[in-house]
Amino acid sequence: MIAARALLTVALACGLAIPAMAQAKSPKQEMEAGRQLVSGFGKCMADAEPEMAKAVVLADKVDFRDPEWQGALDSRCMGLYSGRLHMHLFYYQAALAERLSTNSFPATALVGVEAIVPLNASLSPDAPNAVRYTMALRLGECVARANPAGARAVFATRIDSSDEIEALQALGGEIAGCVPEGREVAIDRTSLRAGLAIMYYRLAARLADRGGA
């Protein structure tokens, strides 16, 4: 739960990639394994196919069955889990965005971001978990604008590590400032990190297109 004056709490998210062979693990172990798988796959794809990865992150909707997106899921990056990896687009976009931001943009990528009008990203109302993910995107954009260096500090941490928790908690002031006065917002750290990654990259890309990065 994140409230206007509260620090981030540690919670688990749903909808990540879970390999078939991991079913014997505890729910917490499955979730951690899923996060690691999506992260590793996203890094591989962003390195192997950066242009396609960029297109996926910037897209509001992606249908992997459409020939247009045929190269967005490369089996070479799935390793032992090829054919058995299932993930929500939101978390895949986040994994790609973190890697692309690190590879493509300097630490000063969001200098001048105030010149960019709010992107106000949202998912289609009929998309799974649309309300939760839209909230994560909106909060992520606000926090990325307020503290770009803090956002990148999060991306530099290992998933499910104490460093990740500390980096997210360090953004407590910005998170509080992005929540309307008197309103409570419940969000898990997985969704918050994902929303932060996607929106940091989209803002940086928009600035770069304008010649601001």
Rank of each mutant, 00 (worst) to 15 (best):
residue 30 E to F: 14
residue 32 E to M: 07
residue 34 G to M: 09
residue 36 Q to E: 15
residue 37 L to A: 14
residue 38 V to N: 02
residue 41 F to K: 00
residue 42 G to V: 02
residue 42 G to H: 01
residue 42 G to P: 00
residue 43 K to N: 09
residue 43 K to T: 15
residue 43 K to Q: 13
residue 43 K to A: 14
residue 44 C to H: 07
residue 46 A to D: 00
residue 46 A to W: 00
residue 47 D to N: 14
residue 48 A to S: 09
residue 48 A to T: 09
residue 49 E to V: 11
residue 51 E to R: 06
residue 55 A to G: 12
residue 56 V to N: 00
residue 57 V to W: 00
residue 58 L to D: 06
residue 60 D to Q: 12
residue 62 V to F: 03
residue 63 D to Y: 12
residue 65 R to K: 14
residue 65 R to I: 05
residue 66 D to L: 10
residue 69 W to D: 03
residue 70 Q to F: 08
residue 71 G to D: 12
residue 71 G to Y: 05
residue 71 G to W: 06
residue 73 L to C: 11
residue 75 S to Y: 13
residue 77 C to I: 13
residue 78 M to L: 12
residue 78 M to F: 08
residue 79 G to T: 03
residue 80 L to Y: 05
residue 80 L to F: 07
residue 82 S to G: 11
residue 83 G to D: 06
residue 84 R to H: 12
residue 84 R to P: 04
residue 85 L to Q: 06
residue 85 L to C: 06
residue 90 F to S: 01
residue 91 Y to W: 13
residue 91 Y to H: 10
residue 91 Y to C: 01
residue 92 Y to K: 04
residue 92 Y to S: 05
residue 93 Q to W: 03
residue 95 A to H: 01
residue 96 L to G: 01
residue 103 N to R: 15
residue 104 S to E: 15
residue 110 L to D: 01
residue 112 G to H: 13
residue 113 V to Y: 12
residue 114 E to L: 09
residue 114 E to G: 05
residue 122 S to Y: 10
residue 126 D to S: 15
residue 127 A to R: 11
residue 127 A to C: 12
residue 127 A to E: 14
residue 127 A to L: 11
residue 128 P to K: 13
residue 129 N to K: 14
residue 130 A to T: 07
